[in-house]
Write a protein that binds this DNA or RNA. Structure first.
Lengths: 218, 218
DNA sequence: ACATATTTTTAGATAAGACTAAAAATATAA
DNA sequence: TTATATTTTTAGTCTTATCTAAAAATATGT
C-alpha cells in the first residue's frame, strides 16, 4: 500500500514518463511537485525499495511494470472522478481538478469498479485525456496541436494541453468545446496566429492558444 | 483547516458527546480511536488551541459551538457518501463504512452541496442515522430499542445501534430491513429473547439483537 | 481519611516527509 | 582537458502524530 505522498510522486513520474523516453531526473520531479531535490532523492529511495522505480544514483528513475500499473490506476481514478463531477454533479471542466486530486487517493477497488460502471465506462475525461483501463493500459488517439494544422485543414477538437482553469474558462468564453469541428481559414506568418471557423463563427486565435488545443484531423 | 487526524478526533468526540452529557474523558477518546491516552492529551491541546474544544487539565473536553459545527459537517459528509454508495453504486449497507471513512475527509463545499442535491436531499443514511444539515443541525426522531418494547407493541424498524458488517449481514440473513413493521409477539423472561412478527413471518430474536435495533413505535 | 488504584499528563523517543546547507558527481565550455 | 556550472546526494534539522515510561492528579474503598 502507498501513502498519499508516495502516490503523488508516482503519478508525477508517470506523467513525466509519457512525455520523455529517457529516465526522469530528480529536478524534473521536484519542479513538478514543488518540492526540493533533496526531498525527491529521499522519496526515490523509498519508492525503489518498494519496487515501483528502477534507480541508479545520479541517473534518474524509470517506472517498473508494477510502478506503471500502480500509477496508471491513480490516473484512472482521477479521470473517472472528473467525469463523475462533470456528468453527475454539474461541475464545469475548470473546477474538477483539485477535487479529483483528493478523490484519486480513495482506496476501494469496488468503489472504482462501480463508479466506472455507473458512468457508462467512459474512455476520456472532461479535458479529452484518455482513462487508463483496469489493467493500466492507455488507449491514445491520433491527435495534433491546432498550431500544426495547415491552412484549410480541419478536425475535431479532442483535448487540451493546458488544463488550468484560466485556459479552460477562456475556451468557454470563446465557445470552444471538445467535439466541435475546427477549420483553419488562415495562418498569420508574423505572429503565428490563426483564423479559424468553429460552428459557423470566425475566430482569431493566438499561437499560445493554438499550442494548447488538440485536434483530431479529419 | 483541519488535518486528517484532527478531523478523526473531532468526529469521535462529537459521537461521544451525543451519548453522554458530561465532558469527554481522555480514556474514552483513546479507547474509541485505539490510540494511547498520551496521544489524546497532545491532540486535545492542539484542538483547544484551534478553538474547537474547551479543555481544563484532568477535566475532559467539550466541543465548542464551532467544534460542534465542524464535527457535524464531517458526519454529514460521511453519511451522504454512504447514501451515494448504496443508492447509486449498489453497495450493500454493510460495505459502506470504510469507504465513507475515507470520503468524509474530501474538502470541497461545492462537492458536498451538489452530492446532497444529486441524492435528493436525503435525511438519513443507510443505517437509519440522521444526516446533519449544512449548518450542522441534527434532526433526531423518537426511537426505542426493540428490547424495550412490551408484548404486543409494534413499530417500524428505523435504525441500528451496531453497524458492524457482521450484525448487518445477520439482519440481511433474517430479512430484517429498515422500514419494515415489527410486532412483539412474546417476550421470554429467562433470556430476554423475543418472538417477533415481520412481514408475516415469525422470528425468534435474542436479546443481543433486540438491543441493537431501533424501532419507531406506532 | 488515608492508602491504593485509576486516570491523565509530562518528558523524551521514533518515523514520515518535508526542509537547508554542504559535499559529491556529472555536464558544459573555453 | 581543465575549470566552472549544474545536478544530485548526503547530513542534519523540523513538524506532525504517534509511542513508552514515569510523574502527577484525581477517584475509590475500607
Amino acid at each position: 500500500m502507498f501513502t498519499l505522498s508516495e502516490e503523488n510522486y508516482l503519478k508525477t513520474i508517470y506523467h513525466l514518463s509519457l512525455e520523455t523516453s529517457n529516465g526522469i531526473s530528480t529536478n524534473a520531479i521536484s519542479n513538478q511537485l514543488q518540492t526540493k531535490a533533496s526531498s525527491v532523492t529521499d522519496m526515490i529511495k523509498k519508492l525503489s525499495d518498494k519496487k515501483v522505480l528502477a534507480y541508479k544514483k545520479y541517473k534518474g528513475v524509470t517506472l517498473t511494470g508494477f510502478g506503471k500499473k500502480t500509477a496508471a490506476n491513480i490516473v484512472r481514478k482521477h479521470r473517472l472522478w472528473e467525469v463523475f463531477l462533470v456528468e453527475k454533479l454539474n461541475f464545469s471542466w475548470d473546477e474538477v481538478h483539485d477535487v479529483a486530486e483528493q478523490l484519486e487517493h480513495i482506496k476501494s477497488p469496488k468503489l472504482i469498479h462501480q463508479l466506472d460502471s455507473f458512468l457508462g465506462f467512459p474512455t476520456h475525461d472532461p479535458h479529452g485525456d484518455p482513462i487508463p483501463d483496469a489493467d493500466g493500459n492507455l488507449k491514445t488517439i491520433e491527435k495534433s496541436l491546432l498550431s500544426t494544422l495547415l491552412k484549410n485543414e480541419c478536425g475535431i477538437c479532442v483535448g487540451v494541453n493546458d488544463s488550468s482553469s484560466e485556459f479552460l474558462q477562456f475556451l468557454d468564453k470563446k465557445g470552444i468545446k471538445l467535439g466541435k469541428k475546427i477549420t483553419v481559414l488562415d495562418k498569420e506568418e508574423f505572429d503565428n496566429s490563426l483564423s479559424i471557423l468553429i460552428e459557423n463563427k470566425k475566430l482569431s486565435i493566438s499561437n499560445k492558444i493554438a499550442n494548447n488545443l488538440y485536434i483530431q484531423k479529419s
